[in-house]
Design a protein around this nucleic acid. Structure first.
Lengths: 201, 201
DNA sequence: TTGCCATGTTGCTAGTATAAACATTACTTA
DNA sequence: TAAGTAATGTTTATACTAGCAACATGGCAA
């Protein structure tokens, strides 16, 4: 008797359904099919229904984008939790950041674009907050001075994010994405953080 | 008698006009108004005329994108030419790269996206080739070993590009874009290149 | 001069976002 | 429980966009 197609007029949880569908789509094809019509069709709903939950298509995209940042944060936290020691933990965060970009290029791209409109929910653990925290750890462990936090943060984040962006892209000139290159990169970042030649300490 | 509106049926140099118009538009508003219709209207031509010169709108965008990379390369070369000494020259390139992203956010954004379709002309001096060259200089000057070039290149490019992207973006968490921060960043990159703690040398 | 062909045009189809008006259902309150 | 209201859908319409096909113009070459 079950499995009758009860086509309810009201979807039930359209907002969540749109976000999930968008998340999956982003995972697969990046930001190409994240439009209002496309996602509305995906969840079997008329395009205008979307606007009952998001003020614009941009807003919907922005919220999907944040889901990407949260998923990324989750994986970074997971990676940290398996490490002991300041340096190991710090490099694990960077590695997770990079690995996410390589494993989930679509999600990564969406996570770092389409953030024009403000998302509905507050910023739950977002990727760069986790990153920021890992640098504060360096501070509490006495490896860097409190006055350096801003500079170190900018440097480390830039290097990791830049590599993630470039290596994950499709430009023919992009740097290789091998374990070798990544390890070396993280070592050089470490060197740039605690190294000798840095002025303004 | 003069100044009669000689409305020629044939534009004369539509391809160039479209590229120039697109370049200006990118400079002003980024990639928002780089569509076929929009640019066609800008040069007072029907949208379909564009397709006589570019196979698709994507292709047009890709060519504008390359103009951006070339302009960037020009400024980087200019910056290098005013410096003496390996370290100075290297840091000048990085600084120019970053400065371009801050001075011309629209152009920078367009230069590093919309490169899906291949451009028509061959890659004339493109931004990262200039960057690459500056790292080869470090090699010929004996500061790094030839075996390190790939790693150093990935590291330095990543750090500079990452910072340029993040600092030029509009995320509220983005790093500050002050002379202080930039100088410090370039010092830390230098430390990561020639520093002590780096493995795999 | 004739005619080809590069370069423009219009008209069309399909896809997109989103505003306005209307329909249905869920929730609340007497 | 019945009635009213708010939430959540749908349809219809306007105004964009990219790009195909067919047609028009005019410069250049035989």
């Amino acid at each position: 008797m079950a499995n009758i197609k009860t086509k309810t007029y009201h979807h039930g949880n359209l907002e969540q359904a749109l976000l999930v569908a968008g998340f999956q789509e982003a995972r697969g094809t990046g930001s190409r099919n994240l439009g209002v019509n496309s996602l509305a069709k995906e969840v079997q709903v008329s395009p205008m229904a979307v606007y009952r939950h998001f003020p614009s298509g941009e807003s919907l995209k922005a919220n999907i984008s944040q889901l990407g940042r949260e998923e990324m944060a989750r994986q970074m936290i997971e990676a940290i939790s398996r490490q002991a020691g300041v340096k190991n933990r710090f490099q694990a965060v960077g590695r997770a950041y990079i690995q996410f970009a390589l494993d989930e290029p679509g999600l990564f791209a969406v996570a770092f674009t389409a953030c024009d409109a403000p998302p509905k929910r507050e910023d739950s653990p977002s990727a760069w907050l986790v990153f920021q925290d890992s640098i504060l750890d360096l501070c509490t462990e006495g490896l860097i001075d409190a006055s350096e936090v801003e500079h170190v943060s900018a440097f480390a984040w830039a290097a990791v994010h830049g590599y993630a962006t470039l290596a994950g892209g499709k430009d023919p000139m992009r740097p290789k994405a091998t374990e070798q290159v990544i390890s070396n990169l993280l070592d050089r970042i470490w060197s740039g953080i605690v190294g000798e030649g840095v002025q303004n300490r």
